[in-house]
Write a protein that binds this DNA or RNA. Sequence first.
DNA 1: GTAACTACTTACTCAGAGGTAACTACTATA
DNA 2: TATAGTAGTTACCTCTGAGTAAGTAGTTAC
Lengths: 115, 115
Amino acid sequence: MNQKDQVCQYKLLASRDALEVIQGKWRIPIIIALTHGTKRFGEIQRDISDISPKMLSQELKALEMNKIVKRTLHDTMPVTTEYSLTPLGESMTNLLNEILNWGIHFREEVLKRDN
Amino acid sequence: MNQKDQVCQYKLLASRDALEVIQGKWRIPIIIALTHGTKRFGEIQRDISDISPKMLSQELKALEMNKIVKRTLHDTMPVTTEYSLTPLGESMTNLLNEILNWGIHFREEVLKRDN
DNA sequence: GTAACTACTTACTCAGAGGTAACTACTATA
DNA sequence: TATAGTAGTTACCTCTGAGTAAGTAGTTAC
C-alpha cells in the first residue's frame, strides 16, 4: 500500500465516524434547528413541520447519547423540556455551513436545470 | 413567522437537498475515494473493502444521475471503465473536508473516552 | 367538565436500504 | 483446459428506518 492509498484509507475511516452520527433523514435538520438557540420539543416539531413526535423523540435521544444535544428539564408548571447543543454539537457549525452551501450550489447547478 | 424563523426554514430546505445526495452508507466513501483521482470499478472496490459490487454499481449509477460522477468507457482490450468526479463532484471538497475534520474531532471527544 | 397544551410512549406496519451468492461475458495467462 | 482478472447483473432475503395512529399523564383555560 503506497502513501496515497494510506491517506485514502484514513479519510474513509474518519468519514465513517462522522456519517454514523449524521446519517438519517432527521439528525442534521434537528441540529440546524438547535443552532438557532435552545428550543423546546414542540418548537423543534414546528420548525421541522413534517417530523412525527416519535421520530423527534427517538433522534433527540440518539443525539443526546452521542453528546451532540443536551436535555434540560425545568421544574415549572407544566414541566418543560429544553434542548440545546453541547460544545461538541456546536463544533458542527462549519460542517453544517458546508452542507448548506453545497445544498444551495447543488440546487442551482442541477435541480433548476432538470425540473 | 419572524426573520430568525425564516432563516431557519431556508437552512432546513437547503440541507435537505444536500442530504438527499449524501444520504446512505456508501456515497460519501465513494466520492472520497474518487477525490484521489480517476479510478476503475475494481480499484474503488478495493479501497472500500466491504462494499459489494451490487452496492457499488448501484450507488455509482445514482451519483452519475446526480452529476457528481462521470463514467468513461475505454475501448481497450479488455474494456475498462473509469470513474471520475465532475466539477460538481469536485465542488464537494470543502464539504468532505469538514466531514473528515469533524469525524476526527468526534472520535477524539467521544469515542476514545467511552470505549 | 371538556378541550387543549405540555412532552412524550407504544404498537403496528411497510418500503426500501443493504447484504449474499451466483451468474454473465469477454480476455489473458499458465 | 482452467484459472484469474476485467465490470458488472440478477435473484433472493433480511433488517431497520420511518410513518401512522392512538394512548398517557399532568396542567390550564373556557
